[in-house]
Design a protein around this nucleic acid. Structure first.
Length: 366
DNA sequence: TCAGGATTATAGACCACATTTGTCG
DNA sequence: TCCGACAAATGTGGTCTATAATCCT
């Protein structure tokens, strides 16, 4: 296969160019055509007819920009090929804890309304749209895409599947974690999923969620199964190794205090949630998309934006008792200090204060 | 357009010590 | 196999500092 490589603009010199126009950097790889395509060419080619629209494509790795992406790293919000994924996430222990999910090839329209790549596009098929949309609209659609994953607290915190019920669990991420079963169904389900084609028309009036529910559920199940170590060599050539699932952090993105009494339990492959925590393990995880009123949608978008502003990646608290001790421990300029040092410091401060206030060199006695 | 200073953002180091983990008899 | 004693390793949070990125002149 002839691949022309050029250095264009802000793309790196290794970036593969579109096999069709040979000018723009490629963004997707079409398996059926064995071709790397840019956004516009992909849209043109695969919107031409129904057969073409069924071609399965995957994003190109954001790191090397030369190979089809195999995994989506949530922490880095990046789609990576197997090689880059291995390189990046074997670099250090923190990187190893990044959550990654396999990227399923998608057919139909793989772009959001902006025609711009979004991380969640890797597992959500978004409605076709206009390339000229604004940042605001892009944000709206990004929010909308997450709305699919949001069960909606406005439903009395009642969630039929028990997912995210009532808590402040992060609403953007970790939605494919904590599966407890159906281990050996991955291959079958994955193959089933591969036979789906994305409906050409959105099923929702607001074009938020065009993915068919059953299909989306299959996506969900597949990712969950993947995360717990399934290995499946499919015809697609996407062989998701088990080692990835083992390196996936249970909660590298959330703050989650893990009761010490349950630590040993959690280390096993199918952990049970401790009491007092939200049960993310045993519940059927998919949220069934529902029709949203414009007001409802607006509210959710606003909530999404608000949380997006404040979201941050925090470490997992493994030992709550240590946290408690650390919080009560005396410090000097942020560092833990010996209690004797603190006492001495307090003495000094007290002495200085007294001298300053009174003007006399009074030595306090305790 | 470029250079250089100012401002802002981010990651990592540091500290003490209770708790956890591993080893040995 | 179980138990106790002991040593070593681990993890915890607020602040500071070095570095990078961005902005402004």
């Amino acid at each position: 296969m002839l691949k022309e490589e050029v250095s264009r603009g802000d793309t790196n010199s290794w970036a593969r160019v579109c096999d069709t126009c040979r000018s723009a950097p490629c963004t997707v790889y079409c398996k059926a055509d064995s071709a790397y395509l840019c956004t516009s060419c992909d849209a043109q080619i695969h919107a031409a007819n129904q057969v073409a629209s069924r071609h399965e494509r995957v994003w190109v790795c954001e790191a090397c920009e030369r190979a089809p992406a195999a995994f989506l790293c949530k922490a880095d919000a990046a789609s990576l090929c197997a090689t880059c994924d291995a390189d990046i996430h074997s670099a250090n222990p923190l990187a190893r804890r990044h959550q990654r999910v396999p990227i399923m090839p998608v057919s139909g329209c793989v772009y959001g309304p902006t025609g711009k790549r979004m991380p969640e596009d890797d597992f959500l098929v978004l409605p076709e749209g206009d390339d000229q949309t604004t940042d605001h609209e892009r944000d709206e659609d990004e929010a909308a895409s997450w709305l699919l994953l949001n069960p909606g607290k406005n439903s009395n915190n009642q969630n039929t599947n028990g997912f995210l019920t009532g808590g402040e669990v992060d609403e953007y991420l970790d939605l494919f974690e904590y599966n407890s079963g159906a281990d050996n169904q991955f291959c079958e389900q994955y193959n089933q999923q591969r036979e789906f084609s994305v409906p050409e028309k959105s099923c929702g009036s607001d074009s938020v969620v065009p993915v068919q529910c059953a299909e989306a559920k299959d996506h969900q199940i597949q990712y969950q199964n993947f995360l717990f170590g399934m290995e499946c060599d499919t015809k697609s050539g996407y062989n998701y190794n088990t080692s990835v699932s083992h390196s996936v952090s249970v909660s590298s993105l959330d703050v989650s205090v893990v009761p010490e009494s349950t630590m040993s339990d959690i280390s096993v492959s199918h952990p049970r949630p401790p009491k007092g925590t939200i049960d993310l393990f045993t519940s059927p995880p998919m949220q069934v998309p529902t029709q949203l009123s414009p007001l409802d949608r607006e509210a959710r978008v606003m909530r999404y934006r608000e949380k997006k502003k404040t979201r941050k990646f925090e470490k997992t608290i493994r030992y709550a008792s240590r946290k408690a001790y650390a919080e009560t421990r005396p410090r000097i300029k942020g560092r833990f200090a010996k209690r004797t040092d603190v006492e001495a410091e307090m003495d000094q401060m007290f002495t200085n204060s007294l001298m300053a206030d009174s003007g006399y060199g009074i030595v306090p006695s305790f």
